[in-house]
Amino acid sequence: MPDRPISPIHVCGTHEQAITKHGIRSLPPDKLEVLSGPGLRTPAEDIDHVIAIAKSGATILTYRDILRVPGSKMSLTDARAEGADVRIVCSANDAVRRAEQSADDIVFFRISFETTTPSNAAVLMNQPPPNFSIFASHRLIPPAMDTLIDDGLDLNIDGFIAPGHVATIIGTHPYERFAKMGYPIAVAGFEPIDILFAIIMILRQIRGGEAMVENAYTRAVNDSGNTKARELVDQVFEVVDAD
């Protein structure tokens, strides 16, 4: 064990919310520090583009949590106050239904990791009406972990608490290369006990001098993930650099 706090890192905003809400950082001894990764951040230019689309007359449908994310000048909430038509939906499928009932141009905007991207692929494969489109701002977790490792040299990353619902789709295999790089990995659900279990798995690996992929969320994640969802995504979207 190193002579500094052991610091596993998570990479998901929902994990950060659970850790904060349940006071998980106050539970373990000082020698353990749970770091918070970048989570899913929307590039300001994506917000700017969507606001420009809204101001051109289209209706924007999105999820509630994105409304306050700042663009370079304003958020979608600010744009709505200035008259842009921005509405909340609970599902990509709801957005399609709104488009079917409307003569307006409907643009569904959602940034997402691997968990949410398949539902966007599904609506596009189901021949939505011509007035429906998606502003896709999807991100992938493994490259985000690469970026953390490459750019986060000031962070002592002792292991990754991997987001469970991403693994529901991609399985556990994509994390194996990080274990080969020496990082213990535990795939975690979003209940406090799931996160604590994942932390214990990582600590056991560190103590044993091991680095492997373990699954602390077997009730929702299997090793191979959801093949059908991944095939749909591959049919509809293409992976490109984010910048």
Partner: peptide, 8 residues
Amino acid sequence: PKVTLTMC
């Protein structure tokens, strides 16, 4: 993170 999305 500055803005946390919790849609997962």
